[in-house]
């Protein structure tokens, strides 16, 4: 059984594209309120893992379970798997099998938020509107699916005010408040990166998946981002799953690191143990010619 504080449990995940095995029998767990980094050389299958978790791909094999609320819900995992349903929601907690859900339900019900390697803001909408779209569901319910909203119903007005306050609060914290009414596409690159994280946070996620959030940032910006991510983790006891190539980010903020190479997990542990792992060093730096066979045998190729 999973530990009480496990939020995400990936078990025996395999993803094949025709003959290509992108991920092979991958298992790992993400604990509540921790930052887990997923690292590995190019083509190791990191983004594929993200795509499986967020419902873009349907895994060939394996189980991806996500939980929120009371930990006893985990006991229902096997029953849920056998029942063929997507998830169970109880008053005190919920458990979902993400591999069974389409992407918008992964976002809406399981509350997994993600960002992409490339920036995918809505460039033509203002910064504030970007954040309101992220709160779309709450607003739609409050607006009675818009008819009441159009008629200016008080409950909707209150909900919209609350959404705006929340958005402004986040912008203030991330130093973007001054640009709230500018089109998102006009922001400088670093600010757009931060805005993506803010927008993901506005969906009130249980798990935040960040695909290379520090890509293209200068050292100062990436240090700022580190502080922000640590702040989010501590204040909201949020779990973050992170793909990152920038080792200063990975080693600086992660609580645990999972290393992939050719779709296989080659190491898993604290940044310190992973950093000194021979297989990881071999995967990143290569090895002397005479050791290739030895390393390949160890990795299982």
């Amino acid at each position: 059984m999973a530990a009480d504080d496990t939020v995400l449990r990936v078990e025996h995940l395999t993803m094949r594209f025709g003959g290509l095995v992108a991920i092979n029998d991958l298992s790992f767990e993400v604990e509540r309120g921790t930052i887990t980094a997923l690292i590995g050389p190019n083509g190791a299958g990191k983004t594929t893992v993200f795509n499986c978790i967020t419902g873009f791909y349907k895994p060939t094999e394996g189980r991806i379970a996500l939980h929120r609320g009371d930990a006893t819900v985990w006991h229902a995992l096997d029953a849920l798997t056998d029942s063929g349903k997507r998830g169970i929601v109880r008053p005190d907690g919920a458990l979902f099998l993400l591999e069974r859900m389409p992407d918008h339900l992964v976002a809406q019900q399981a509350r997994v938020a993600r960002t992409f390697q490339n920036i995918r803001l809505f460039p033509g909408m203002t910064v504030l509107e970007n954040l309101l779209v992220a709160q779309h569901n709450a607003l739609m319910v409050a607006s009675g699916y818009t008819l009441l909203g159009v008629l200016g119903f008080p409950s909707y007005a209150a909900a919209e005010r609350a959404a705006l306050d929340k958005a402004r609060g986040w912008l203030d914290r991330f130093g973007l408040l001054a640009r709230a009414d500018d089109p998102a596409g006009d922001l400088p690159y670093g600010a757009q990166r931060r805005l993506e994280v803010v927008r993901a946070m506005c969906t009130e996620p249980v798990l935040l998946c960040l695909d290379e959030p520090a890509a293209g940032l200068n050292p100062r910006e990436s240090a700022e981002l580190n502080d922000l991510l640590l702040g989010i983790r501590d204040d909201h006891s949020l779990s973050i799953l992170l793909i990152e190539h920038d080792m200063s980010v990975v080693m600086g903020i992660s609580d645990s690191v999972v290393v992939l190479d050719y779709g296989v997990k080659i190491a898993d542990g604290t940044p310190e143990t992973v950093r000194n792992d021979q297989k990881v060093i071999a995967a990143y730096l290569g090895v002397a010619d005479e050791d290739v066979a030895k390393v390949e045998a160890a990795v299982g190729l």
């Binding site: 992407d103 918008h104 992964v106 809406q108 995918r120 992220a134 569901n137 969906t203």
Partner: peptide, 10 residues
């Protein structure tokens, strides 16, 4: 796609 990921029912 992004709208769907933010929970908008496309």
């Amino acid at each position: 796609k992004m709208a769907a990921l933010l929970g908008v029912d496309v």
